[in-house]
Simulated assay, not measured.
Amino acid sequence: MQDETQKSLFMNWLDEHGSSVMKVARAYTLTSEESQDLAQEILLQAWQSLPKFEHKSSVATWFYRVALQTAMNWKRKDKPRRARQKPLLEVQTLVTEGCDSAEQAQQRDTVERLYQAIHQLPKADTALVLLYLDELSYREMADVLGISESNVGVKLNRAKKALNELMKGGSHGS
């Protein structure tokens, strides 16, 4: 693939599917700086993997697969330093029309608690929850994760139960 063609294709795909990169990066990191670093690493891996893309899956599935693999490797390699990190205190502002500041504060708190709970899940469950939150079908989730659709249903049900417990204040071993 010629460099200019590859660059053009990559930029188009990034416009269409770039939000998945940030969602994955946010879910696997604790600070906004870490999130940006991981997003850059994901984009680098995607760029380097582009010549090997064989069109056997959709572009969205491919982007998710690269993002999740990179994030999981990042999390594993970076564990010692992350153990010393403080959780993200700022929450991305939700744009909500018609809500007063008390409702917005409650929404921000809920989103922050959700991300804290997601951080406590095993990494495979984290990936599944992200795909679910991005409203992918079971088939698409199965393609990204390389498991069967029925396995997606079973694992997703377990992950939802674990998240529910974590949101209530329980703990979940990872």
Rank of each mutant, 00 (worst) to 15 (best):
V24Y: 01
V21T: 15
M1R: 08
E140P: 13
L156P: 00
V144H: 01
S171K: 12
E165K: 14
L14E: 01
M11N: 04
W13T: 11
A83F: 04
R65Q: 08
E34N: 09
R82H: 03
V152I: 08
L88P: 01
S171Q: 11
A71H: 01
V95I: 04
V129R: 13
Q116H: 05
G146T: 11
T126S: 03
Y115N: 01
Y138R: 15
L89N: 14
Q2P: 04
A159S: 09
V21R: 09
N151H: 13
D3I: 09
E140V: 03
K75A: 04
K56A: 02
D143L: 09
R76F: 07
Q69G: 03
A102W: 02
L94G: 06
K77L: 05
S57W: 07
P51N: 02
E97G: 14
E140Q: 06
I147M: 08
M11Q: 02
K56Y: 15
N157K: 12
Q104L: 06
L88Q: 06
Y138Q: 10
K23G: 10
N12Q: 03
S20C: 02
L38V: 11
A60E: 14
L68C: 02
L166K: 03
V95E: 14
P80N: 09
Y132V: 09
Y138G: 05
Q120Y: 15
P51I: 08
Y64V: 08
Y115C: 02
A162Q: 07
Q106S: 10
Q107H: 09
H17I: 02
C99E: 00
Y132T: 14
T31G: 04
L50A: 04
D134L: 03
K23L: 05
H172W: 12
D134Q: 11
D143S: 11
T126P: 04
E149S: 07
A25H: 02
K79G: 06
P122A: 10
S171L: 05
S174G: 12
R139Q: 07
M141S: 13
A105E: 14
R82K: 10
R139W: 14
K86P: 00
K168N: 13
K86F: 07
D78T: 15
A71C: 01
T61R: 15
T5G: 01
K161T: 04
E4L: 10
G18M: 06
V152D: 13
L9R: 08
L131H: 07
A127R: 03
E165T: 09
V59H: 13
E33W: 14
K160Y: 04
N157G: 02
T126M: 07
Q69D: 08
A71S: 06
N151L: 06
Q107F: 15
I118T: 09
A27T: 02
A142G: 14
R113S: 15
N151M: 14
L114V: 14
E112Y: 13
Y64I: 07
R108V: 00
G18V: 11
E97I: 11
L133D: 08
L38F: 01
Q40L: 04
R108N: 05
